[in-house]
Amino acid sequence: MTALVPIGEFSRLTHLSVKTLRYYHDIDLLSPATIDENSGYRRYSTTQVGSAQLIRRLRDLDMPLPEVRTVLAAADPETRNATMRAHLERMEAELTRTQQVVASLRSLLGPIDALAVEYRSVAALSTLAIRAVVARRDVGDWCGAVFPQLYITAEQHGIEITGPGGATYSSEFFEHDSGEVVAFVPVPAGTPVVEGLEALVLPPARLAVAVHAGPFEECDRTYGALGIHVAEHDVAIPDPIREIYLVGPNHTDDATTFRTEVCWPIQHAA
């Protein structure tokens, strides 16, 4: 049998404070079943306990109020479950990111390995490429999308890939958190243009090169160490930095096994 209970009793039934229940009423998230016209006392139906408990759990999971409304208003279980599933997936992604940051912070507590720097003069390099202006926060997803396109398209057209793929990063990418990124795979000179890809020749360059081994989140440590070395021993030029993915974001490699050459452009020796 359904019963009506005052707000204090409903608070005990649901583990939601009276203040919280009043707030949920004010924003029309969970309204009382009845309100006394004279006293203003709120009474809740015992049939509302399940909704209140659901709200409490969703808010404990930091679900935004508009999404909580969507769950409560869902006319069918499929709609409700889809909203909750999407939120859980976002939370799982955030948990993964937090775990990665924690692991990276722990690595800062340990000793820094000596950085091996190699100097390399490279000739012009023929490539097939995809370029775009990319925000720093989106670069991982962007690389994850375009490198499979590069490798698979080359394979479909019978184009030989002559070495590991890579990317160039403009100065604006670092200075403004958004800038041109060019993903490329090396191919023989004279390779015909393929629809959707750009035939790009990377210019010859003098590079200071260091290898980053480990997750992408810790690549800044290699950048920092290599940049310090260049600042103290060479003259940097503002050409795009190149990354060469010895193991990395092609269409098969696991993102946890990155092994990347970071190539810093410098002036040619006198």
Rank of each mutant, 00 (worst) to 15 (best):
A213E: 15
Q100E: 11
D60N: 11
Y41N: 09
A93W: 05
I7Q: 00
W142Q: 03
I159G: 00
T34S: 11
L207I: 15
H268I: 11
L21W: 01
Y223F: 06
D234H: 15
P66N: 04
I159S: 00
R43K: 04
T34M: 12
L246M: 13
V49K: 05
P215I: 11
S171N: 15
A74Y: 05
Q100V: 07
V194P: 01
P240I: 02
P188N: 11
A189N: 14
A213K: 12
A205I: 12
E78A: 15
G8I: 08
L72T: 04
D28E: 06
T162Y: 06
S17Y: 07
A124W: 08
T162I: 09
T260I: 14
L95T: 10
Q267V: 15
F184T: 00
A255L: 15
T14V: 07
I55M: 12
T153N: 04
H176Q: 15
D239F: 07
Y223C: 05
A116T: 06
G224V: 02
G166I: 10
T14P: 00
E175V: 15
G163Q: 03
Y23S: 00
R57Q: 13
I55W: 01
L246P: 02
Y41S: 08
F174T: 06
G40R: 05
S39R: 14
R59I: 08
R137C: 14
M84I: 09
V193C: 08
Y223L: 01
D36G: 09
V193H: 12
F216P: 02
R69Q: 10
D36V: 13
A114R: 04
G190F: 03
G196P: 01
I237C: 13
I152K: 02
T127R: 03
V139K: 08
A255I: 11
T2Q: 08
R97G: 02
R69Y: 11
A33T: 02
Q53A: 07
W142G: 05
P32M: 01
K19G: 07
